[in-house]
Design a protein around this nucleic acid. Structure first.
Length: 209
DNA sequence: TTTACGATCTAT
DNA sequence: TAGATCGTAAAT
């Protein structure tokens, strides 16, 4: 199937105009696509976390609307790209409704297209560690602050998400979010991290059956 | 203007 | 387990 923008099955704004936890779960199995120098670089989204509004003390929007968090208050389907720990970029998908600050942090993808490009940007590391972290996947796909605010629901911005094979419940692990050790309960333990098991991997932090 | 810290990654 | 390294937001 082809859409108006010339790319296959780009997820529409409606996909993101839902509660953020629902969107985080639904993003598993979809394809994150980057177009750079006319080349497609992509990977299946296999891990994502939800950050839900000003009340969520782990969410950047807990401090209200600032220059940094302004994108989260915008329309669903935009990219929220922020810089952290002095050296890493992280990519989020803003979710709806407009005016409500929520976003899904993309934590890991499985490389699909543009393998050589990714390999070059992640040189010297084993393939399993190319994109298994939020800062790693942005490095692998050449994503930085210049893409903050980009509309992910069209291919025109060079970064978008395509429909994929939805992840079945039997392959999805749910657990608490990562890297928010100093956040008080109940937010620290909210099971808002979703991971799709592709192969035998460690599943630390998840409630396995 | 200054300070403290962070939705991380890597090498040790 | 600690160091890298700097934007952000709160404190001064």
């Amino acid at each position: 199937m082809r859409c108006l923008n010339g790319e296959a099955s780009v997820l529409p704004p409606d996909f993101f105009d839902r509660p953020v936890v629902e969107v985080a779960r639904a993003l598993l199995g979809t394809r994150l696509v980057r177009r750079l120098d006319g080349q497609r670089i992509s990977g299946l989204i296999v891990e994502a976390e939800a950050y839900d509004g000003e009340a969520d003390l782990a969410c950047h929007a807990r401090a209200g609307r600032t220059r940094r968090t302004a994108v989260m208050y915008g329309p669903p389907g935009r990219a929220y790209v922020y810089f952290t720990y002095g050296m890493h970029w992280c990519l989020n998908c803003v979710t709806g409704p407009q005016g409500y600050p929520a976003a899904v942090l993309l934590r890991a993808i499985q490389p699909q297209e543009g393998i050589e490009f990714i390999a070059a940007r992640r040189a010297g590391r084993p393939q399993a560690e190319w994109c298994n972290g939020p800062g790693k996947l942005t490095q692998a796909l050449g994503i930085d602050g210049g893409l903050n605010g980009v509309d992910l629901t069209t291919a025109l911005g060079g970064l978008w998400i395509e429909a994929g094979q939805p992840a079945g419940d039997e392959s999805v692990r749910v657990g608490p979010r990562v890297g928010i050790q100093n956040v008080p309960e109940p937010w620290r333990s909210r099971p808002w991290r979703f991971r799709m098991e592709i192969e035998k991997e460690n599943s630390k932090g998840f409630g396995n059956p």
